[in-house]
Amino acid sequence: MAVDHYISVDELIGALPSGDGRVGLDLEADSLYRYAERICLVQVCYGKEVKLIDPLAEESLDPLVDWLGSARIWMHGADYDMTLMLGEWKMVPPMLYDTQIAAQLLGHQRFGYASLVEQYFGVELSKSSQKADWGKRPLSSKMLEYACNDVRYLLPLAHEVEAKLKELGRYEWFLESCEAAQTRVKKREGEEKEAWRISGSGRLQPTGLRFLRAVWNWRDGEAAAWNRPSFMVATNKQLIAWATDLAEGREINLPPKLRPDRSQRLGAAIKEAEGIPESEWPVRPKRVRQRYDETFEKRLKELMENRNQIAENLGIDPSIVASRGVLEQIIAGRVDPADILLKWQLSLLEL
């Protein structure tokens, strides 16, 4: 029974390997069901053991967080998990290795966890609980089994991909790539954001941007008060449509099930935005427009062909070596190659 895998933090700490021992880790959160997302389940595997920690129980996770600071942790597709850990635990394990990064460096075209488990071990994992509400209690046996399977094959998979990386001489690439992934997440979390600048906002003029900011802030407040994800109040597509209509002087189409009190607060937010002086309207981000002359195009073609040949020889996706966008920035002289590429990428491209 998966429920038997539950363990207290103190029991887990006492059982975990010390020193250079490998540990697999996964997290489940409730971002699809709550405004303030939480880590709702911690799955840990070591040796042949799979254990579950309930972060929503009245038990401090501090000993586990402290232990993670000196452990060798394997995860799969850890970008979101690292964001969760930074937000809730204020840390990311410094020795964190990602089997998804390893799979990409090995040239796997299907590098999702379930796909890799099937490729390496012939086991087909269920994805039925992927979007489940992990914040509810008790968790069903089906969800618990899904959670256990999310780490059950992680260490065997790590063993396989690590051996292949070393055999191909790409292990140092892997280590550098994992470190760079951590750096990106930490940098992203530390940046100041204008969260209301959602996809599609770049097409709006300042008059539309003031309305977009207003309706986004209204939605955010409603979602926070309701403790539900913001898309349950209104989608990004709706916000863009409203901002566009308001900027052009048209009435907006409200969802038929929008509560009267919410509708009133939306109206107040729009009215307030209408009164904002033009000098205080948000501005459109300045975009650097590169003029692609014949010399630029020739150099880009040369670099792309070189990159593609390198990738073909290695059996990996060309974007893993360098994306087109990165190469364009380098040729345009907007960045130093050493500031945007990893050492192994620079070496391959001879930049």
Rank of each mutant, 00 (worst) to 15 (best):
residue 207 T to P: 00
residue 51 K to P: 05
residue 40 C to Y: 10
residue 9 V to T: 04
residue 45 C to I: 05
residue 190 G to D: 12
residue 227 N to H: 12
residue 293 D to W: 10
residue 252 I to L: 12
residue 271 K to N: 10
residue 48 K to A: 13
residue 262 R to W: 14
residue 206 P to H: 15
residue 149 N to W: 03
residue 251 E to P: 07
residue 316 I to D: 10
residue 117 V to C: 01
residue 26 D to L: 00
residue 279 S to T: 09
residue 42 V to A: 03
residue 141 S to N: 13
residue 217 N to A: 14
residue 309 Q to A: 13
residue 15 A to I: 08
residue 76 H to S: 01
residue 98 D to T: 00
residue 150 D to S: 01
residue 303 L to D: 11
residue 184 R to L: 14
residue 22 R to P: 15
residue 67 W to P: 08
residue 112 G to F: 02
residue 168 L to W: 09
residue 92 V to F: 03
residue 271 K to Q: 14
residue 289 R to H: 11
residue 51 K to R: 15
residue 326 V to P: 15
residue 281 W to A: 08
residue 251 E to W: 11
residue 72 R to P: 10
residue 267 G to E: 07
residue 279 S to G: 07
residue 207 T to E: 05
residue 138 P to V: 12
residue 210 R to M: 07
residue 267 G to R: 11
residue 192 E to T: 09
residue 252 I to S: 05
residue 176 E to H: 07
residue 257 K to I: 14
residue 292 Y to M: 14
residue 28 E to C: 00
residue 131 K to F: 13
residue 275 G to Y: 11
residue 227 N to T: 08
residue 308 N to H: 11
residue 97 Y to Q: 04
residue 247 A to K: 11
residue 101 I to E: 00
residue 28 E to Y: 00
residue 114 A to N: 03
residue 124 E to K: 09
residue 156 P to L: 08
residue 147 A to T: 06
residue 245 D to S: 12
residue 334 R to P: 04
residue 78 A to W: 01
residue 202 G to N: 04
residue 76 H to D: 00
residue 87 G to A: 09
residue 351 L to Y: 05
residue 324 R to D: 12
residue 277 P to A: 06
residue 222 E to I: 13
residue 197 R to D: 05
residue 97 Y to E: 04
residue 134 W to D: 02
residue 119 Q to R: 08
residue 255 P to G: 11
residue 242 W to R: 02
residue 282 P to T: 05
residue 306 N to V: 05
residue 109 Q to E: 11
residue 94 P to M: 06
residue 227 N to S: 12
residue 339 D to R: 09
residue 113 Y to F: 08
residue 301 K to W: 10
residue 320 I to L: 15
residue 275 G to A: 13
residue 115 S to E: 10
residue 19 G to P: 09
residue 219 R to V: 08
residue 54 D to K: 07
residue 77 G to S: 07
residue 196 W to Y: 09
residue 243 A to M: 03
residue 142 K to S: 06
residue 254 L to N: 10
residue 187 K to R: 12
residue 109 Q to T: 01
residue 342 L to Y: 02
residue 314 L to I: 04
residue 17 P to D: 00
residue 218 W to A: 04
residue 288 V to N: 09
residue 47 G to E: 03
residue 145 E to W: 07
residue 319 S to I: 11
residue 274 E to Q: 13
residue 233 V to N: 10
residue 17 P to N: 03
residue 244 T to P: 01
residue 82 M to P: 00
residue 185 V to E: 07
residue 60 S to P: 07
residue 4 D to S: 15
residue 175 L to K: 02
residue 207 T to F: 05
residue 257 K to W: 14
residue 273 A to M: 06
residue 6 Y to S: 07
residue 273 A to L: 06
residue 128 S to M: 09
residue 42 V to L: 04
residue 146 Y to W: 04
residue 113 Y to M: 03
residue 224 A to R: 15
residue 130 Q to S: 06
residue 262 R to G: 15
residue 214 A to I: 11
residue 316 I to W: 09
residue 295 T to D: 14
residue 36 A to P: 08
residue 101 I to K: 00
residue 145 E to Q: 14
residue 9 V to G: 04
residue 81 D to N: 00
residue 140 S to V: 03
residue 249 G to K: 07
residue 103 A to P: 02
residue 341 L to P: 01
residue 331 I to M: 02
residue 302 E to V: 15
residue 1 M to E: 15
residue 18 S to M: 10
residue 115 S to K: 08
residue 214 A to M: 09
residue 183 T to L: 14
residue 334 R to Y: 13
residue 59 E to V: 08
residue 318 P to Y: 13
residue 298 K to G: 10
residue 116 L to Q: 01
